[in-house]
Design a protein around this nucleic acid. Structure first.
Length: 502
RNA sequence: GCGCCGCUAGCUCAACUGGCAGAGCAGCGGACUCUUAAUCCGCGGGUUGUAGGUUCAAGUCCUACGCGGCGCACCA
């Protein structure tokens, strides 16, 4: 280690070498009277605009046009009197900047070589030209540091570890085009859903996330506390009970796209906070919702992929076009078992099938629950193409309207794709007397039979007693829609997923 | 909650059966006016996740803990 090779940094600072070097470059900028974080930069064109406008500029020629561009330095190729840098700006477009001794001058060129690192944000003002090799470039007349990066960029050509991608998404976004693409795809899909619903005269509302009682689904909630009211509140597990209140009030087509919170396990298809579309339509039923959901998803595929055939990031294709397969729960189960089973098949027979297929059975399960477990064990993972699975046992769906022709069943479907549940819909139960009976039973169950611990949403029941029109209702996981469109895990579809503290 | 696998330089990864911690990129010094993950010469960079233990000797073996991944369970 010779004295000359030691960068002028404070050795007392306990930082990695590269961070000390960058801090010292920031100091040098300040010492030379250059602001490392100036208030702005006069950008006259985005890199994409320049690429579009000068796409036909001949090799080794000059346009005569001067522009101001900005971007993050992602590659540097410095020579003695001529430097090249690849800049990338917000939409991911890259463009080459050139700094030559005769154009930018000795001092500016020297500063560039001495003070600019990979990852810095810079502004370049100069002429649009093409290099001798034909690369579209901006030949700098001047350059400006717009934000000095104090941390080194990770290697651009090797993938970040999955953990770093999730924990430091900002870095992931900088280095990985796919990460930026995911953000755009998600925004496009959500926008498409809103437009699909607006086009069908649905109104978008926002209902409480802080709730006195949590309802509308079966899940463990997060608990929080209001200081003003001095009461505990729940983060909602579903918006359902408020959206139904809106339908009672005459908002006949209503939807909400927002977050739900469930205090349960996290895995590749479950996130504690997840975005959900829930929609209700008066005088519709689960058949109507089935048609609509298919259309909304196909419209989202069109918006994001330009086709009903979506290409996943691993290159595989998923065809979301046309009519989708529609089966019944018991029909699909019968097919998988090779034996006819219905909602009337007795428990002992179902237990024999379970044993035959190595499914361990909880003795508390009734025949309906066991049939659903068999479905999940045998059928669910086979449903890669979008498939509606219809008509669930009353036993497992007590809050759903009874099937209009099939005793013992309810009018509910689940939509499966890639082996996971993407959406669900119901012909809603709107009889307030039956609704109360079922809710009381559910609440008692949740409270372990303790009537004192039972939580019943009396206000919701009061609303229902004013009369809710017959309605179809649906819910779809937004994150899961993005999983279907991209083939990625749920944590890749969420920009900043919850992670344990480092 | 249980089991298995992993955690090594800024990043991505090597290091055989316990025997001097390495590479590529990045960084630092130098050369280069047409490069494209530039090239060439030279150099530095480590509390091997944390805390203990075994051993002459631990990245490597043992124990506990932390974080991550996968599977199971829970959960819809």
């Amino acid at each position: 280690m010779t004295e000359q090779n030691v960068p002028a940094v404070d050795p007392a600072e306990d930082l990695p070498e590269q961070m000390r070097v960058r801090r010292s470059k920031r100091d040098r900028l300040l010492a030379e009277g250059v602001e490392p974080y100036p208030v702005g930069f006069e950008r006259t064109a985005t890199l994409a605009e320049i690429r579009a406008k000068y796409a036909d500029l001949a090799t080794d020629s000059a346009s005569g046009d001067t522009v101001g561009i900005t971007g993050r330095v992602i590659f540097v190729r410095n020579g003695g009197k001529l430097c090249f840098a690849t800049l990338r700006d917000g939409d991911g477009t890259e463009l080459q900047a050139m700094l030559s001794l005769d154009q930018v001058g000795a001092e500016a060129l020297e500063q560039w070589k001495r003070l600019v690192d990979l990852g810095d944000l810079v502004g370049i003002t100069g002429e649009v030209i093409t290099s001798r090799r034909g690369e579209l470039s901006v030949l700098a007349g001047s350059w400006t540091m717009t934000a000095k990066a104090l941390r080194p960029l990770p290697v651009a050509h090797r993938p970040l570890s999955e953990e770093t991608r999730v924990r430091q998404r900002y870095v992931d976004l900088i280095v990985r085009p796919q990460a930026r693409e995911m953000v755009r795809t998600r925004a496009t899909a959500v926008r498409s859903l809103r437009e699909s619903l607006f086009a069908r005269n649905y109104l978008e509302v926002e209902t409480p996330m802080l709730q006195l009682l949590h309802g509308g689904a079966t899940a463990r909630p997060f608990v929080t506390h209001s200081n003003a009211l001095d009461i505990d509140l729940y983060l909602r597990i579903a918006p359902e009970l408020f959206l139904k209140r809106a339908v009672v009030g005459g908002i006949e087509r209503v939807f909400e796209i927002n977050r739900n919170f469930r205090n349960e396990g996290m895995d590749s298809t479950h996130s504690p906070e997840f975005a959900m579309l829930e929609a209700y339509q008066a005088y519709a039923d689960y058949n109507v919702m089935q048609q609509q959901v298919r259309e909304w998803i196909q419209e989202a595929a069109d918006a994001t992929a330009g086709s009903h055939i979506v290409t996943h990031f691993d290159g595989t294709e998923l065809d979301l076009g046309g009519e989708w397969r529609s089966v019944t729960l018991f029909g699909s189960l019968s097919e998988a078992l090779g034996e006819e089973v219905t909602v009337r098949t007795d428990l002992a027979s179902l237990q024999r099938y379970a044993e035959k297929h190595d499914l361990s059975v909880d003795p508390k399960w009734g025949p309906g629950k066991l049939a659903e477990e068999l479905f999940e064990h045998l059928v669910q993972h086979t449903l890669q193409q979008p498939t509606f699975v219809r008509d669930y046992p009353e036993e497992t769906t007590p809050l759903t309207r009874a099937h209009r022709t099939e005793p013992g069943l309810t009018e509910k479907w689940d939509l499966y794709v890639l082996g996971f549940e993407l959406a669900t819909a119901y012909s809603e139960l709107v009889d307030p007397v039956v609704q109360r009976e079922r809710l009381v039973a559910q609440s008692l169950l949740a409270a372990g039979g303790d009537a004192e611990a039972m939580q019943l949403d009396e206000d919701f029941l009061r609303a229902m007693e004013y009369g809710m029109p017959p309605a179809g209702g649906m819910g779809m996981g937004i994150d899961r829609l993005l999983m279907a469109l991209t083939g990625l895990g749920i944590r890749e579809t969420i920009l900043f997923p919850l992670v344990r503290p480092e």
